[in-house]
Structure formats: C-alpha cells, structure tokens
Design a binder for these strands. Structure first.
Length: 720
DNA sequence: CTTAGGG
DNA sequence: CCCTAAG
C-alpha cells in the first residue's frame, strides 16, 4: 500500500484536484533509501505510474538521491497528467459519474506546439468565477517579509500542517492550500505549478516559479478584472477570514464545491497510523537537498529555512526544470533580495567561471538542464523580486519596444505588483499590469570574428550580469522619475482611478553594483552610468587583447610552449584560428547593439526558448590544434598525468576555454588515438611524433603512479 | 575546486 | 565535451 505523505489540493472554481505524493511501501515497513525511488504521485485516486528515471549515473551508482529530485521534477508532469486525466474523465461520456460539477471547468493541455505544455484551465462561461488551477508547494515564500509578512504569517495549526499558499479570490473564494500531513515533517518537494487561467474575456496572465530542491516556489498570479489578493504565507490560515482548505489523503474523486469553499475539500482517508514511515520519508527527502540546507523537518524550522532560502549568490546551482511540461512564466523567485555583498559573488570572475557557469546552468533534471540560476530574467533571482508579475510569453513580447513598462490599468487586477505598489490592497487598490520591463541599455564589445553564438552568449552574460548585479525598480510617473520611496501612491497621483499609462517601471542597475566588473579579469565591465539608462559596456576579453598568436613558436621544444597557446576569445573554433593573426584590432572592435539589446531584452519574458539549446548551450567544440597538443604533451611529460590543474596553468593558462578537465580529456583521447591505427584516427592528424611521446609519457607516469601507491617516492623526474 | 572516470 | 563522485 501506499502512504500518502503529502497531498495537494488544486481547487478550481468547481473542481478539486488532489494530488498526492506518497511512498510506495508494499510491506508497510519503514522506508529505506533503497526504495526512495518509489516516491510516486497520485491524484484523485490515480497514481501516476511513470516517474522519471534517475540519471544514468544515479542508476549506475545505485543511489536514489537524484530520484527524489527527479520525482519532484515530475510533479509538473503529474499535473499535466492530472489535467489530461481529468479532461478525459470529464469529456468521457462513460465517466460521468464523477462530479456534478464536471464540465464546469475544462482543463486542457495547451496545444502541442507550445512546448511548455502549460495547463490551461478554462472556466466554462463562469464569468463570475475565474477558473483557477494553482498548485503550490508547501513552501514558504521567502519574499515579502517586508510587504506581506503580516498577512502571511499565520500561526501553524496543531497538526503541524504548513499552510503555504493561500489564494483567496474575491469572487469564488478560491484558494489553494498545500499542506504537509503526517507529522508535519514531510517535505513536499513538488514544485509549484504554473498554469494559465483564462479569465473569460479578460486578459490573464499567470506564471509560476518552477523551482526545485525544496527551495522556495513562487506563484505569480495575475488576474484581470478581479479584485484579488494573493497571499503567500505559512502556517495555518487561522487568522484569515476564509478558511484555507486543506486536503489530505486520498480524496474522493472530484469534488464539487460552491464558491464558499469552506467545507473541507478532502477527507483524509489515510489513517494516521498508516503513516508510520513518515519520518523516514522525511529523512529521505531531506537528503535530496542537503546540499544547501539541513534537513529541516520541523515546520517551524522549515519556515525559517525557506525564509532564508537561497540567495542569488548561492553557490548551489539551482536546477530548474525547463518549461517542458508547463509554462514557466517569467517569474521571479520569491526570494528576498540578496545583500549587496552577496550579489557580487555570483558574478563571473573570469572567463572560465563564465563558461563554467554556463555549463552548470544547463542542467535540469530530466536532461539535466540548468537554467542560469540568476541570469534568467524569467526565472530571475534577481533584483526584481518585488515585481513578480509578468505576462505570458505570447503576449508580452511584442510590446518590447514599447515604453519602459506597459501598465494595464483598469479595474480588475490587483496584482502583486499592485500590491507592492500599494501595500494594503484593501480599499483603493491600484491595479497594475506590468507588461514588460525595459532593460538598461547595453553595449556589447565583441570581436568581429566572434560567432553569432558567442554574441548571443555575450549578450546573455551581459543581461545576466545586469539582472544579477542588483537591480532597482524605478518608478516613472508622467515620464518623471519618482525618487521618494516614502511617498504614497496617492500622493504621487497613482491611484486606482488614475491613468496608469503614465506610470512606468524601469529596471535600473543598482548603483552599488553596477560598477562591479562582471568578470574580474577578462570579462565584461560595467560602467556605471546614469541611473535610468545607464550605458553598460560589455567587453568579453579585455585581457587577451595583448596576446597575439602571431609568435607561436614553431619549435616544438621551445621553452614555455605553453604560454604560446593562444588564449581564447570565443571566436569560432576555426582550426586556423591559432595561426591567424588577429588581435588587438579585432578584439577591440566595438559592436554596438543598443537597439537590439534594448528591444530584445526589454522583453520579459524572453521569447520562448523553444530549443533548450538556448538554455543549455553546450560549449562549442574546439578541436585541439597541433600546437595545443604539443603544449599539452610537453606539460604532461613534465608534470605527469595527475596534475591537470598544473598542466593547465603551465601550458594553457591563457587559453581560457581549456579547462583542466578538457586537458585531461584531451590527454585521454590522445592516449587512445596513439594506440589506434592511423586509419582510425579522425580530425586533424596529430604528428606521430607527438603521439609517440604521448604513449611514452603516459607509460612513464602510469608507472610512477603505480609506484607511488606502493611507496611514496621523492618527486623525481627521471625521464626529463 | 580538483581528480578521475564513465558516458 | 558533459556529468559526477570523491577527496
């Protein structure tokens, strides 16, 4: 049988969807790590069978750590499935037994062409009731300690449930509550669910954060024409006027509900004693994110933990599931703004870091793709936290060229942005819709010989740097900047019945941050500019400017061959690259792309990154040239095969694109190449002489290594 | 961050 | 080249 350890209630206007997370535990024994991978999800009685597979290495290792994470990732899959099943259920004439309220809400998958496959919940002509489908992880949003703490700080109730999200809506009293059950220690790892809700004829936007690993999840919601509040809190909602709905266990299939939503939505069908392994579950799950947090099993602790959740500077790379199964709206993580000091940390220090970061960002659960953890505007950790409010990709994009921020006034929306603008969204609320932010002007400096791909990357880095470097939100009223943060909206004239067209927001580099070099050493530099439209110069590799390649020694055994290896300036990986004498002039070429960058970057979110390639750009392949091989061989001959860092420093210190891992890998392939017949070799032929040296050196150092293992010998280099 | 290896 | 486990 399965133990439901967590359940989620998705309540739309008329439907309740319960998603359960439970551990399969046939024997009823306590769970062990060996069956961690049995974490499954179910909903409305369905159990989602196919869960993501563990990573290869995970399987190989027989560990299941990753599995949990991946299962988490699958939460969204689950949701998609839920929607699909529900749809079937509701559309299937044979299954009309479920709910009287069926057909009141239609949950459909978005058209296939939308890669994100967001779920669309469309209320069927229920004008007075916006359909909603919202799922949130029982995680306390770290944000808004300043703004919403009052509303969101609810005492926890006795059963230790952690109320994490409440979405009261005026019309339907819809709310979503996620809760941990069991002893309250269970950590639900399901990420927040993002969905779009179509609100009748009104515009709608909704996006959520899909974050994993137990980190804060965010839900961004915006509805038009409805006065709504979005509260995100923790603890039981005992103080709220509307009782949160807490679900637990396997609920009956679909429940219909009226708009009062006060009655328990789901009955707990799981006997308390059937959750003996809760603790185990907790431990297990906690392990998953032990990387950056201790296993916070107690609700209260958890709350705390999430409050201090991952900062931008967190070294940990967040894994965010690409919007494969749902629409990951551009949304900002609910994190508090990092301290200025912390923000610097993540900034690339050098090229190496840059691309390392790039690489690391490509990982995401299924395919291990990492989004730029702080780079992505759309998932930003960045400084725009307080503006968790975005448009769906489809509609906001085109407006990029428009004014800084497109606001949509009107009577319906009480968005977060609005809340932030007017804290107490109670009486005269200002409803704002920020369609897009204008990103500060960027200037890119990149060699003419650079590839388009590198240009993209450069721009990306620049944008990333800006966003990550600390942003401020500027408020423009009638084109004039409102500098006084303490003045009320009313005083400024920003009132609900005002023309919000005159209101604008801008993203401004934080003065204290903007002057920080993006990549100390050889990367982009910020030139702090004037606040609103600062000029940011982004130049890739200033430091390599002086390093020509023209004097690459042709003498294989010349001293210090290593330093002759040209440094990389991210140009196309041309075999002739090394010998081509392009340097200073090229490198200094300044390419202005203000128009492009401004317009393009002003789009929030960015155009759908259909191909994750954009996100997960694999480093371009750069075949080793003979010169490089020469340098490598020489270095290895000298240093041995176990000191790749030294080899790198010695021979490739200027080749930023060659990491010690690369060198190690190259050596590996060289050894292999040397052993195979010349006919089988591919690519630029490596002189046999070099290959011979490779074998010789390899043999020698292998022997040395073997000897060392027996009895540490003084470092002697007998051969050289 | 480095190494060492598998993929 | 990527990804990870280990150290």
């Amino acid at each position: 049988m399965s133990h439901v350890t967590d359940s989620f209630l998705f309540k739309t206007c008329h439907h309740h969807i319960v998603v359960e997370q439970f551990w399969e535990n046939p024997e009823g024994k306590s769970l062990s790590h060996t069956n961690m991978n049995r974490l499954d999800y179910g909903f409305n009685g369905y159990q989602v069978p196919a869960m993501p597979r563990a990573t290869r290495s995970a399987r190989r290792r027989g560990t299941v750590q990753k599995r949990v994470a991946e299962n988490k990732m699958c939460a969204f899959d689950l949701l998609a499935t839920v929607a699909g099943k529900l749809l079937q259920e509701e559309s299937s004439p044979t299954s009309s037994n479920t709910s009287s309220a069926k057909d009141q809400c239609l949950i459909v998958k978005q058209d296939a062409k939308d890669e994100s496959k967001a779920l669309n919940v469309e209320p069927c002509d229920q004008g007075s009731c916006d359909g909603k489908l919202f799922v949130s992880e029982p995680v306390l949003q770290a944000h808004d300690e300043n703004n919403c703490s009052k509303e969101s700080s609810f005492p926890q109730n006795d059963d230790h449930s952690v109320l994490t999200s409440i979405l009261p809506t005026s019309n339907c009293s819809e709310r979503l509550v996620t809760k941990n059950i069991g002893d309250g220690n269970i950590k639900n790892e399901i990420g927040s669910f993002c969905s779009q809700v179509q609100d009748g004829s009104s515009m709608y936007r909704e996006s959520g954060i899909c974050k994993l690993d137990g980190e804060a999840k965010t839900l961004v919601k915006d509805e038009s024409n409805n006065n709504r509040e979005v509260l995100i809190g923790t603890g039981a909602d005992t103080g709220s006027s509307e009782d949160p709905v807490v679900s637990r266990g396997k609920p009956p299939a679909l429940l219909s509900s009226d708009s009062s939503a006060k009655a328990p939505l789901c009955v707990d069908h799981v006997p308390a004693n059937s959750l003996p392994s809760t603790r185990d579950d907790v431990k297990v799950v906690s392990r998953d994110d032990d990387e950056n947090s201790s296993g916070c099993t107690h609700p209260s602790i958890r709350s705390k933990r999430f409050r201090q959740a991952p900062r931008i500077g967190d070294r940990r790379i967040r894994k965010i599931l690409a919007s494969k199964h749902w629409k990951v709206g551009p949304k900002f993580k609910d994190e508090t703004l990092p301290n200025p000091g912390e923000m610097i940390k993540p900034i690339y220090r050098n090229r190496k870091d840059c691309y390392k970061r790039q690489r690391s960002q490509m990982t995401v659960p299924f395919k291990k793709r990492k989004l730029f953890d702080r780079s992505s505007v759309w998932t930003s950790d960045g400084g725009i936290n307080d503006e968790r409010f975005f448009n769906s990709p489809e509609k906001g994009i085109g407006d990029a060229s428009e004014s800084c921020v497109k606001l949509q006034g009107g009577n319906g929306t009480c968005s977060r942005a609005g809340q932030n603008t007017s804290f107490q969204c109670r009486d005269s609320h200002v409803k704002l819709r920020i369609k897009s932010f204008r990103v500060p002007e960027l200037f890119i400096e990149i060699p003419e010989t650079a590839t388009v791909g590198s240009l993209k990357r450069t721009v990306m880095e620049a944008v990333t740097a800006i966003l990550g470097g600390g942003l401020r939100i500027g408020v423009l009223l009638q084109g004039k900047k409102v500098r006084d943060d303490n003045i009320t909206l009313q005083q400024t004239g920003i009132s609900h019945d005002n023309e919000l067209d005159s209101l604008g927001f801008t993203l401004e580099p934080n003065p204290s941050q903007s002057s920080t070099p993006l990549c100390t050493g050889d990367s982009p530099h910020f030139l702090s500019g004037d606040a609103p439209q600062p000029l940011i110069r982004y130049s890739p590799n200033p430091s390599i400017v002086d390093q020509g390649t023209s004097n690459v020694s042709q003498e294989p055994h010349a001293a210090n061959l290593g330093n002759l290896v040209e440094s990389d300036h991210d140009s196309a990986p041309s075999p002739t690259d090394m010998s081509v004498d392009k340097s200073t002039a090229d490198l200094k070429a300044l390419v202005h792309v203000p128009e492009m960058s401004v317009d393009a970057l002003a789009v929030v979110p960015p155009p759908r990154k259909s191909k994750r390639a954009e996100i997960a750009q694999r480093r371009i392949r750069r075949p080793f040239s003979v010169n490089e091989v020469e340098a490598l061989v020489q270095a290895v001959e000298k240093l041995g095969t176990g000191r790749w860092r030294d080899v790198k420093l010695r021979a490739f210190d200027n080749a930023k694109h060659r990491t010690y891992v690369d060198l190690k890998d190259k050596w590996k392939t060289l050894v292999h190449t040397a052993r195979i017949s010349p006919q089988q070799r591919r690519g630029e032929p490596v002189p046999q002489e070099l290959l011979d040296r490779v074998l010789t050196a390899h043999a020698y150092w292998s022997q040395q290594q073997a000897k060392q293992q027996l009895k540490p010998l003084p470092e002697t280099c007998l051969l050289f």
